[in-house]
Nucleic acid binder design. Structure first.
Lengths: 354, 354
DNA sequence: GTTAGCACTCACCATGCATGAGTGCTAACA
DNA sequence: TGTTAGCACTCATGCATGGTGAGTGCTAAC
């Protein structure tokens, strides 16, 4: 019915205005700034309705209205428009990426920086999670005495290294044997090692070598199973000072900053994303009391079509959803493409993205 | 003269009190809490003198006094006492370190965490700077196509790896040749490569291999010369909210946090340490406008007697210098010892520390 | 259903005032 | 000459007060 359309037109205007100004929006403001063609009195009536429906909140009796989380939800679900961000991004991003191939850490850092620069929000980027990936190659490098560097290359051509401390000093020959054995045994095998698969072939090795095998396998298990492996990098945490609702509220700022500096919370935040494409979680939807004033927009990036990590932004619920969603979407694609071009190349599945 | 002693007794009491309470200290407070045996009126006279001498500051006419940076300087130089922190630290730290050998990143993270936990201040830890170290070993691992992983082990047994992108796909044989050549040429040679040294021996290689050599050498140069290599890890940045002088001053908090999140500033901060042992820089002494409200206590840690990095804490100028200096001193020694035990072992120089 | 008008609410701001911590100065004392 | 008591003075802080203005809800008229 026509009536409801108008209600939501007004709601839309209020949300847009509040996103821009961070000030409670009054009926006269709507009448003046957005020509809906009805008087402020009528708008007032509609606003009263919208408040009763749970879309608006009045901070105090005679103030204007503020959109509720429910309003933002509606906005995101029904009113959000795609913004063409390519023009902003293409040049900048691609030329930036061009200089950072291979070094994943660096690529992720740059991505976070770009995200912050584009959105003026705190950005979060999780490093690729390699748990569950297949191993392609294993190398063992003797550092000195009982110290050995383990280098693992996955099917996706992600390189991981870790130091192993053996109980005794191995000879180069032993290490070579062990590496050869592992490469033969592990090829095309899931990182879920099962003892039985080894037992049949491990006999060919000396007891000392077998011991090394088990230490290496243990380390690989740790690397490939630990959640801890996938760190979340943050950037632009002080962007929060841009926003008056934080700048004028030390407590809020404090709890935001405390949350954003805790790896465990950030990991949790990203682990609870369900959406396959871009996820928007508004206020309490993100499931973290510490960030109940904030919205989180995130999406997963892929390597060879396999989701391996997440990028996102965190900011006040009053954020420009249209723009931010588009930025995240575009940047996720750019990142996925970049990774496929530089480290991808396995034939595991076809490349998604543009 | 006796007169001056009393003055500085009073100054000492004021500093101790202000460090503890963060409130301007009045003459009556001194009279009551610290029994110097003179009346508040006399103390007032002395305080007026101390103010004229530049040791005290009055925030407004009828308030108590606050120590100036000059006062803290005097305090650190003349009154500071060593605190026995071993009892706090020994068990905790050593058992913590015991689980993190080899993985330098991890060790540095833990160190920062311990520092924050012990001092309730923001801690900074720079990762070991390897520029200028000697190379012991070079390994090349073929990842795929034109991607090669370079692993460099220094005399100090620090392991660094970086990915190299060649212009064509090398054979395993080529990589082996190149690695052998480099290991022979580089052994015991400073990381300052000189073209002439190569020229004589490089002829034995094929043109393709020579190309790889130059790409590897370039990468090594980058690794070993870039300042960027030595990152500064921070921990406990939100500890700053503990301190009322920041908690009640958004601007101050903002600029602290903005500074502490800038790698370039942190690197600069650590690059300007001169002191060989524990360095204490009070307020503007640290040379950074952004941190002119803060003091920085830092010290360098070593591997095989060679200074390779810095650890430190940053906090309000009103900090417990006695305690913090002792913590930094002890922890630097513990870290140096730990590194010598786990990765050290080169005979370059004798081990310092306990 | 829409609008004008009006009384009402309440954050915000400026002002004024009392309070109290702390000072500087002076005069008396040892 | 150094120390102390006394006192007037200063000024941040807290609290009450009143005016202002943005904005509302309600009612009555269109």
């Amino acid at each position: 019915m026509k009536n409801n359309d108008r209600k939501f037109d007004i709601l839309y205007s209020i949300i847009r205005d509040y996103i821009k100004t961070a000030e409670p929006v009054g009926s006269r403001t709507i009448e003046r700034k957005y020509n809906i063609g009805i008087s402020s009195a009528t708008i007032r009536n509609e606003m009263a309705d919208l408040e009763e429906m749970g879309y608006l909140v009045q901070p105090y009796t005679s103030a204007g209205r503020i959109p509720s989380d429910k309003a933002y939800r509606l906005y995101v679900d029904r009113f959000m428009k795609k913004v063409d961000v390519d023009s902003y991004i293409k040049e900048d991003v691609r030329s930036l990426y061009r200089h950072y191939f291979g070094e994943l850490e660096e690529v992720m850092n740059k991505t976070a920086q770009i995200l912050t620069k584009l959105t003026n929000l705190t950005s979060l980027v999780s490093t690729p999670n390699i748990s569950g990936l297949n191993i392609k190659d294993i190398h063992l490098i003797h550092i000195e005495d009982e110290r050995v560097l383990l280098v693992v290359i996955t099917e996706q051509r992600i390189v991981k290294s870790a130091e192993i401390r053996l109980t005794g000093t191995p000879t180069d020959e032993m290490l070579e044997h062990v590496a050869n054995f592992l490469n033969l045994s592990i090829k095309d095998m899931m990182t879920e090692f099962r003892a039985s698969d080894f037992a049949s072939r491990v006999d060919a090795l000396t007891p000392g070598e077998q011991k090394i095998v088990s230490e290496v396998v243990n380390t690989i298990k740790v690397i490939f199973n630990s959640e801890e492996d996938s760190r979340v990098i943050s950037n632009g945490v002080t962007e929060i000072f841009r926003y008056p609702e934080f700048r004028n509220d030390m407590d809020r700022t404090k709890s935001f900053l405390e949350a954003i500096h805790r790896q465990d919370l950030l990991s949790y935040l990203f682990s609870t994303v369900q959406d396959d494409s871009v996820s928007v979680r508004i206020g309490e939807e993100n499931g973290m009391e510490e960030l109940s004033n904030c919205s989180v927009i995130s999406a997963t990036y892929k390597i060879n079509g396999r989701p391996v990590g997440t990028i996102g932004v965190v900011g006040p619920t009053r954020m420009d959803y249209d723009y931010c969603v588009s930025v995240i979407e575009t940047l996720t694609n750019e990142l996925t493409n970049h990774l496929d071009e530089t480290i991808g190349g396995g034939k595991e599945s076809d490349t998604s993205g543009r």
